[in-house]
Design a protein around this nucleic acid. Structure first.
Lengths: 331, 331
DNA sequence: CTGAAAGCGCTTACAG
DNA sequence: CTGAAAGCGCTTACAG
């Protein structure tokens, strides 16, 4: 590999001059600059990034720590981050924490040692911040330590679902929340409940029943079964996640309850499966792109005033599982 | 950040000595070593990896270029690679080529400039290798240039499916291949066909019809429809991918053809959806882990004799979509 | 505008 | 066994 020295010799200039044309911003006179450019081309020279990093003490790499790249949601995030970083000429270093706080701590340290430009972390459950680091860090989706968080506006999204259901005419609704130990689950639930409460009037009352499960298919199926076999069957079930909702869909199929004819079902997240399932699921689409862009942006603007948390709204995606309740007047 | 110099001063030794205890292998006498260790601990020292890299001209980072991390298959691969790299104390730098040969070329160059230890690339379609690089490179799943390829043994896997179908008693089989422009599709098809041919005897003849589609749900649904509406309906349909197979499943549901009672359906890949779909799909599980491990291993052993391609066998996963043909004697 | 030189933080022969 | 010193390939004041 040719070095800056080789280029300098070939062009008959000093290494300082070569470095200056590399930096572009400086004013190297035309004739010299051309000789240098020519020499670089002929030698197929490209600067040693490691040396540059050592000298300037900064490297154009971002660190990303996520629980599991195999989770489609995180994969989407990772893709968005990689693209946004690439736009700025940065690469991204990826680590899977496997939702293990221990591993996460090690990875944060490793990234610090590599002196990356900054780190984006989707925290594990129960992650602990070891030592203070000097790098900019931003939490994404799930908060890491005390660092500012960029996340979907779960409260708002659930509210949109509530509005949608209400507008469709549903007045007998069941909500299946995620585990209350999780922030997301709480936020989604309270967004839904508070919107319903706001919509609820004495003249046009809404019946809302609350259930709690885990964010997975089986939980949805089990709870769906229970709700649908019960005496007072609701006309709509809003689930706190797509996985829950898809479980509900299964239970409905099992019990021969027609969706959306007899029952409306909604989810949250818009995982790939949501549009693959039959009928296709009405849900809230998480703003992957906006989340990724904002997180990367913060790393680059970290010099500025410490920005607070950011909640980004997701869009309501109306598909085939939501419709007016049976017997409703057509709209 | 404290440097090696600070440690040396604090311990009252030379930087060379500190460096030697860092390297471990060397013999620094006990008393000195302890003083150094103590100084490092007190200063919370960790070596500057960039400086080390510049000096030693090697960095403990692997490059990974894949078409799209959002594709579950690639995500699995990426995860395996990251874990295997971590075991060896290496990080991985991830790039999405978006199946764009142009972007891919840029990314290879970028990784070379960063002087990573080696690069694993899942090639785009029509990727072209620009200039020769001095780093070890290995192709994964899809060949990049002339570099050795580590991939699933598609031929073998399809043969296993053929065996499975034959053993169940199916003698009237349809095979839906992927697009013949793709190597994988060809290999899977020829693996299936040649196995069937081997099994075919005058006394116990097999009827095999061949179809060609794309690797997606719609294609499977469309072709499935055609096959199942035709006059000579087969008792089994082997699809070249899970997506195709799931499309077939849909068409069967549409046409009220019971799976597996009246029709056996099989896929290839074992995507997540394969075990989520109802009934759950019988398929060939790609050996993600083994693929990842082998690819990483090759990067580390690249000094040794140039190894050739490697085809790793996947396992047959028997689930609910395969059964003896209707009217078969019970086994 | 350009060159000579120092220095980023390490590692590793070379002496002793 | 340990220290002094060179050097990895850059960038950037400092002179001129």
């Amino acid at each position: 590999m040719p070095t800056i020295k080789d280029v300098a010799r070939k062009a008959g200039v000093s290494v300082g001059t070569v470095s200056r044309v590399l930096a572009k911003n400086d004013t190297v006179k035309q004739p010299l600059r051309e000789r240098v450019l020519k020499a670089m081309a002929e030698l197929d020279y490209s600067p040693n990034l490691t040396a540059r990093a050592l000298r300037t003490n900064r490297i154009d790499v971002l660190g990303l720590i996520i629980p599991d790249i195999t989770n489609p949601f995180f994969a989407q995030l990772a893709k968005g981050i990689e693209m946004e970083a690439a736009k700025r000429g940065h690469s991204v270093m990826l680590s899977n924490s496997h939702d293990d706080p221990e591993a996460e701590a090690v990875q944060v340290t490793a990234l610090c040692d590599r002196a990356v430009r900054g780190i984006i972390v989707v925290a594990t459950h129960g992650s602990q911040v070891r030592r203070a680091v000097d790098l900019p860090i931003v939490s994404l989706d799930r908060r890491y330590g005390d660092y500012a968080l960029v996340a979907t506006d779960h409260f708002d999204g659930s509210g949109k679902i509530a509005d949608h259901l209400h507008a469709l005419g549903h007045r007998k609704i069941a909500y299946i929340a995620g585990p209350m130990s999780m922030d997301v689950a709480q936020q989604r639930k309270s967004g839904f409940v508070s919107r319903i409460e706001a919509l609820n009037t004495p003249e046009d009352p809404i019946e809302l029943t609350l259930h709690e499960g885990h964010f997975d298919y089986d939980s949805g199926e089990e709870i769906g079964h229970r709700i649908l076999s019960g005496p007072q069957r609701p006309t709509a079930i809003a689930a706190a996640s797509d996985q829950l909702a898809i479980g509900v869909l299964r239970s409905a199929r099992d019990l021969k309850v027609d969706v959306p004819g007899e029952l409306t079902v909604t989810g949250f997240d818009d995982i790939t499966l949501a549009s693959l399932v039959v009928p296709r699921l009405t849900t809230i689409r998480q703003p992957f792109e906006a989340l990724a862009i904002s997180a990367v942006e913060r790393l680059f603007n970290s010099a500025e005033k410490e920005p607070g948390d950011e909640a980004i709204a997701g869009d309501l995606v109306i598909r085939e599982t939501s419709a007016p309740p049976p017997g409703a007047k057509s709209l």
